[in-house]
């Protein structure tokens, strides 16, 4: 009976060690694999991403949206530190606005610009009625974007 307990204990410890090593390996290597989009700083750091199809996410910089015609837009995406210029041809979603979250899909060009072929508005976790926003903004308590 003791030998049975012993062998079970050894099995348990062995599997625990394997699981621990496996989890450590996964955590240390799990950096940007499941990432849905990159931020501007991450993209600028990795110049090898140039020329690839990918997604870029961040806030639309204030006063950066320009439309050449009705359907061609230029705007900058920022994460507070860095900005990347984006060109997009198409219809913008309703929730697209300056100083709001956005994820664009397209090609990161070699000259550092981003040609988007799809724009997704990223919603933040705040749900507020318009009147509340007004009062919050007036009293200076509003900490959202």
């Amino acid at each position: 009976m003791t030998s049975l307990v012993k062998s079970r204990l050894i099995k348990f410890l062995l599997s625990l060690i394997i699981v621990l090593i496996a989890v450590l390996i996964i955590i240390f290597n799990l950096k940007d694999n499941i990432i849905y989009f990159y931020g501007p700083t991450e993209l600028l750091k990795n110049s090898d991403k140039q020329g690839q199809i990918m997604r870029l996410g961040g806030l639309v910089s204030v006063d950066s949206v320009q439309n050449e015609t009705d359907s061609i837009f230029y705007f900058n995406i920022t994460d507070g530190d860095n900005e990347i210029e984006v060109k997009y041809e198409g219809i913008l979603p309703n929730l697209f606005a300056e100083d709001k979250g956005v994820v664009v899909e397209g090609v990161y060009m070699n000259d550092g610009r981003f040609i988007a072929n799809k724009v997704l508005a990223k919603h933040d976790e705040n749900y507020m009625p318009p009147e509340v926003i007004e009062t919050l903004k007036k009293s200076g308590k509003w900490q959202g974007e």
């Binding site: 849905y36 979603p93 929730l95 799809k118 724009v119 997704l120 508005a121 919603h123």
Partner: peptide, 12 residues
């Protein structure tokens, strides 16, 4: 669809 602009995205 109205918020992001798509029905479905393949995020985590």
């Amino acid at each position: 669809k109205p918020t992001w602009g798509v029905w479905w995205v393949w995020d985590a």
